[in-house]
Simulated assay, not measured.
Amino acid sequence: MRFIAAIVALSAAAFTTPATAQEEDFNIWLGQFATINATDDVYVRVEAQERFTNDADRLGQLLLRSLVGYRINKDVNIGAGYAYILTDQVGPDRLNEHRFYQELNVRLLSTEGGVTLDSRTRLEQRTFEERENTSWRLRNFVQLRVPISDNNKLVAYTEPFFDLNETGIQRGGLSIWRNFVGVSIPLAKNIEVVPGYLNQHVFRDGQDRSDHTANVNLFMTF
């Protein structure tokens, strides 16, 4: 029953946004993620994400990210990495972001029936070619995976973003909250695609924005 309650809570969060007036946008986000096991303990992760915004009419953001990780044990691993993000907003501003980050991954729950609950805590240092100062941000990702058939799992996650300082880029405090519900579909050994719905609520000093996103991610392990 606790697993079912967690699913319901995450699903409700994904489709619920504050009742205040807000801007809304439809997006399509695509992602490709590859994990390469260098040794039993050391791994490399690379990824690319393409985010089509403004009613999915244009490529609003391109993200390229890499990480080197170390498995402390079967349930805990740590890593550090670098990401380049090009944000092409509507209007004249284009932002080139160089992001360094560190993360801690912990498996909180694993049952014989295949239910897993995972946490990822990530600390980011964000610098921009067009801006001064470094923006510090903390984000905590919690994901639940529950078997719903012999080959498929329900995937649900929630991830709040907290700005740790105020800069020309970020406002400070809770800035973004993402919630996702989808289904994993295996394509081959160690390869799966996870389509689903993602809601991104952006908290702003003025009117908030809610992004309704068709999200499709491809995961590969080598």
Rank of each mutant, 00 (worst) to 15 (best):
V216I: 15
E50M: 13
E159S: 08
P195M: 04
I85D: 05
R99E: 02
V216A: 12
R71K: 15
N96E: 03
L67C: 07
H201R: 13
L144F: 03
A21W: 09
H212Y: 10
E47H: 07
R51Q: 04
G114V: 02
G31S: 07
E103N: 15
A214H: 09
V155R: 12
E50S: 15
I28W: 13
H212N: 14
Q102I: 06
A19C: 06
T116M: 09
V142F: 03
Q200G: 10
H98K: 05
Q61R: 13
N37E: 13
A34H: 13
D25E: 03
D41M: 09
A5W: 11
L174Y: 04
L86K: 14
V46H: 07
V183Q: 05
A9L: 12
P18F: 04
R178H: 11
T158K: 06
R58T: 00
R99F: 01
L63M: 11
N77G: 06
A19M: 09
R45P: 02
T158Y: 11
L117R: 05
A38M: 12
A5V: 10
P186G: 02
V68P: 07
R126P: 01
E23D: 14
Y197F: 03
E50W: 14
P147R: 04
W177A: 13
R107L: 10
G113Y: 09
Y70R: 11
Y84T: 01
I148T: 02
M220I: 15
I176F: 11
F203L: 06
A83N: 03
A188F: 11
N73G: 01
I85V: 15
I191D: 03
K153V: 04
F219T: 03
N140H: 13
R145G: 06
L64K: 10
P147A: 01
F161Y: 10
G81R: 04
G113H: 14
G168H: 01
L64E: 06
Q61Y: 01
D163L: 01
E132I: 05
I176D: 14
V183W: 08
F219E: 06
I148D: 00
F161E: 01
S110I: 05
Q207S: 08
S110F: 07
Q22D: 03
Y157H: 15
Q32F: 15
P147W: 05
D150F: 06
N215R: 12
L62N: 10
A83M: 08
V46M: 10
M220S: 12
H98C: 00
P186F: 06
N140A: 10
F3I: 14
D211K: 14
G172S: 00
G182A: 05
P92Y: 11
D118S: 09
I78K: 12
N152I: 07
Q125V: 03
